[in-house]
Amino acid sequence: MRTTFAVIVALGAWLAAAPLLAHHAFSSEFDINKPLKLTGTLTKWEMINPHSWFHMNIKQPDGTVVAWLIEGGSPNQLIRLGVTKNTLKVGTEFTIEGYQARDGTNKAVGRNFILADGSRYLFGGSAPGAGGADK
């Protein structure tokens, strides 16, 4: 019906806006002009709020290892889904696609976390969207 389409269009802007309100501070913290892709192993997942932090050892082309800190989301919903500090193992290898911190340090926001097998979800069956079968 005509009104349905008008409704969806009218609401579109507002519906899209809600999650974007959280983005403002991130684009101040991280630089949109510094996209990066890092591969390494996890040394620690700090399950804290307001954002969790993945401590990574990133392999450099010359073979050395550099420590990076990658910002992720609050762990609270994952905890409700059964994720604990034992879920993500130290040494897990993954690639991060994200953006570097504006202050130039070895910090980045992790947009995508890609496991060695190519899948996008670190938390396996616990994460919504992972596998598709569970939730």
Binding site: H51, Q77, P128
Partner: peptide, 8 residues
């Protein structure tokens, strides 16, 4: 420039 909500 944000973590992916779905991941979490």
């Amino acid at each position: 420039v944000h973590y992916d909500f779905t991941q979490f």
